[in-house]
């Protein structure tokens, strides 16, 4: 190595650091967490606390095994952010054992198998989400029914999240009443039964209201990140815009099996994902043009998977698929933009 060194202290007043970036992301998540707590009960808090706790412990263990300094990677809060994102993506009813598996996948398969922070080609939280979704489809598509929520106490939730382990959910018929499928899962069920869904959709828009509030809270958090320049505008804007445009075109010229734009945008993980998942700098494209291509790709894939694919909400898969394309996008942009 040469002996030139940039004396950064001479020229920068406030030193940017990874910790600070991550802390801002955590702050931006708060409104969304509060909204989810209001909508789905204490399960979401349990998820966040549990996931973060185990993720940090596991991360430290891995760092010790890999003979890395705990001060560098251990304290940069990136693992806390990733674990929180996973905890917010999964249902609040998810049994602890399943969440633990998700955290294991996140830290080991999502991150450290590739060499740790900054080396992973795929968004670790989404890798864990996909693994959970494929492995435990029953518990991953089940949410508390908001209308029954008043009867669910913290104790009940804890009981559900621990006792159900080792048993099939269908053995707990009592829980059947207070749990239900997510709105998008429900929509898909309707579509497959080939019933006319327009009436259902009209009713559903009303029952959608709480979900719109959750999405709006995540939106506020995303705007905060934009304001603090933690994320750039290209990815969230293009994700949402491309999804909205395709939905609009399809709703106008296509069949009536697609709900209106408002419903489309504010249901599922779209807003949350556009601001918090797709913008993960490690796995997103680098250049401005690259980020636009990347975001557009995610929006289109999310639309295709949601309305034509095998899963009710394909945001995680859309992100993972576009993660795969990132090196190609970066290279192509570089080649095209330079003389």
């Amino acid at each position: 190595m040469s002996h030139v060194s940039v004396n950064t202290a001479l020229v920068r007043s406030e030193s940017p650091s990874v910790q600070r970036v991550m802390l801002q992301v955590l702050v931006a998540l708060l409104p969304g967490i509060v909204a989810l707590y209001w909508l789905t009960g204490p399960g979401v808090l349990l998820n966040v606390v549990f996931a973060c706790f185990f993720a940090v412990i596991l991360e430290c263990m891995v760092l010790v095994v890999r003979k890395k300094s705990l001060h560098g990677e251990g304290t940069d809060l990136s693992i806390v952010v990733a674990a929180s994102l996973l905890a917010l993506s999964v249902p609040p009813t998810l049994p602890f054992m399943h969440l633990l598996f998700g955290v294991l996948v996140l830290v080991l398969l999502g991150k450290h198998v590739f060499g740790g922070l900054g080396q992973n080609p795929f968004n670790p939280a989404m890798v864990a989400y996909a693994a959970l979704f494929i492995s435990f489809p029953q518990s991953m598509t089940l949410w508390f029914n908001p209308t029954e929520l008043t009867s669910v106490s913290l104790l009940d939730t804890l009981k559900f999240k621990t006792e159900v382990v080792g048993q099939t959910l269908s053995h707990y018929p009592a829980w059947d009443a207070i749990t239900k499928a997510t709105p998008l899962e429900h929509l898909r069920t309707l579509k497959l039964n080939q019933e006319t869904i327009s009436v259902e959709l009209a009713n559903h828009t009303v029952s959608q209201a709480p979900w719109i509030i959750v999405s709006a809270c995540f939106f506020i958090g995303g705007v905060y990140l934009l304001w603090r320049k933690v994320i750039q505008w290209q990815i969230p804007v293009t994700v949402i815009a491309s999804f909205a445009i395709v939905s609009l075109v399809w709703a106008t010229f296509g069949t009536n099996s697609i709900p209106n734009i408002g419903y489309s945008l504010f249901s599922g993980a779209l807003i949350f994902g556009a601001f918090f998942i797709a913008t993960d700098p490690v796995t997103a494209a680098s250049s401005t043009a690259g980020r636009i291509v990347y975001g557009t790709g995610i929006g289109l894939l999310a639309f295709i998977i949601r309305y034509f694919g095998g899963y009710p909400d394909g945001f995680a898969f859309a992100v993972l698929l576009m993660n795969l394309c990132v090196p190609t996008i970066d290279y192509a942009v570089l080649k095209l933009s330079q003389p």
Binding site: P137, Q138, T141, L142, T168, L169, S170, P173, D176, A181, T189, L192, N193
Partner: peptide, 15 residues
């Protein structure tokens, strides 16, 4: 049962 019948459904697989 959810749709007014007599069968238990498979959790997560009504269809």
């Amino acid at each position: 049962k959810k749709n007014g019948g007599e069968f238990d459904r498979i959790t997560g697989a009504t269809i």
